[in-house]
């Protein structure tokens, strides 16, 4: 069973490598690059949501911390992006400890509200602390990444790089889930009391996984800053945190693969919807990008109500059902012959 995850990973790698070959237009490639940042953050978030059973509504803030740390330090002091990315990770870890330790000690969903409040505060600071963040105008001229002399300044180059990072992140997450620690996490999700009774320090695990997931987001943020080379507070608000949580839940929160599916689909959705505007018109509906929020709400609600294991769960039970039918028919055919 363990090995299946790694076979999927290989297939996933091949599929993603083919995407740029199929997409002629740089614009579509850039959509996929943006999807890769969401994907990375969602992989981390799914460990927290699906495995530790905790909701964070502040992960966009960690993306923001990564982005602003990289943006500020590279533009002000001309430090290497790799170093600033690392510093962003360290800051995210510190903040995750400060927010996570007190709220994860409590039962219930204090973490959700605490992270929501913390995300809102950071957003306000990003807008108001003009001296550091540039305020609503943001930071400009952030340098692109330099990979051993190869400057990642085109959409295609960045596509390969950022999806490689996603694949590595995915590999790490899969390793973790299929390890002693991962089993401990799944156990705590199954029954916290039973997990405690066999010696698992569940509160420490929750905190560790919250930190771990914050790191994923922080790296996604640094990558984002060096890709767009210009940042403002817009993409790091509460709504994006909620959207990340939605991606994980829609894809299927109890499997890492669910996060991959959910983040890819929902990142491409706005593109798909604006592409279909003409189609909506034939029904007399004037579709505007403003309606995206409503669509996300409808998708999240329908999935949570009708398909609680998400799209991944839906796919795999459909797959099992088909397999069973085929098997049964096979047997029938044999016995009748």
């Amino acid at each position: 069973m363990v090995i299946r995850d790694y076979i999927f990973l290989g297939i996933f790698l091949l599929v993603m490598a083919c995407v740029p070959l199929l997409l002629k237009n740089d614009y579509y490639i850039s959509i996929f690059v943006f999807a890769s940042f969401n994907c990375l953050a969602c992989i981390g978030l799914s460990l927290l949501l699906g495995y530790a059973g905790q909701i964070s509504l502040g992960h966009a803030a960690f993306i923001g911390i990564g982005a602003y740390t990289s943006g500020y330090l590279t533009t002000q002091f001309a430090w290497s992006p790799w170093i600033t990315m690392f510093i962003g990770v360290v800051i995210s870890i510190i903040i995750a400890i400060a927010v996570g330790v007190p709220s994860l000690k409590l039962r219930g969903h204090y973490l959700a509200m605490a992270t929501l409040g913390f995300g809102a505060i950071l957003y306000i600071v990003a807008v108001a602390a003009v001296d550091i963040t540039g305020g609503p105008a943001g930071l400009n001229n952030i340098p692109p990444l330099n990979l051993f002399g190869l400057i990642l300044d085109s959409d295609k180059k960045f596509f390969f790089f950022s999806w490689s990072v996603v694949v590595i992140g995915l590999l790490f997450a899969l390793n973790l889930i299929n390890s002693r620690v991962g089993r401990g996490l799944r156990a705590l999700h199954g029954s916290e009391d039973a997990a405690n009774s066999i010696g698992i320090n569940t509160s420490s695990y929750k905190i560790q996984i919250f930190i771990f997931s914050a790191v994923f987001s922080s790296i996604a943020g640094s990558l984002y800053a060096h890709y767009v080379t210009y940042i403002d507070p817009g993409p790091f608000g509460i709504m994006h945190s909620v959207l990340l949580m939605t991606m994980v839940a829609v894809g299927g929160m109890h499997k890492i693969w669910g996060a991959v599916i959910g983040s890819l689909l929902l990142s491409l959705l706005p593109e798909f919807l604006s592409f279909s505007t003409g189609y909506f018109k034939t029904f007399g509906i004037e579709y505007k990008p403003d309606y995206d929020t409503l669509v996300y709400g409808i998708i999240l609600l329908s999935i949570m109500l009708f398909l609680p294991e998400g799209l991944y769960g839906g796919f795999s039970s459909a797959f099992r059902a088909v397999k069973n039918i085929v098997k049964r028919n096979g047997k029938k055919a044999k016995s009748s012959s």
Partner: peptide, 15 residues
Amino acid sequence: RLVIITIGVSIFLEG
């Protein structure tokens, strides 16, 4: 699951 549903309702109502 219930908490996520209320989040879904809130996005929906906002929309």
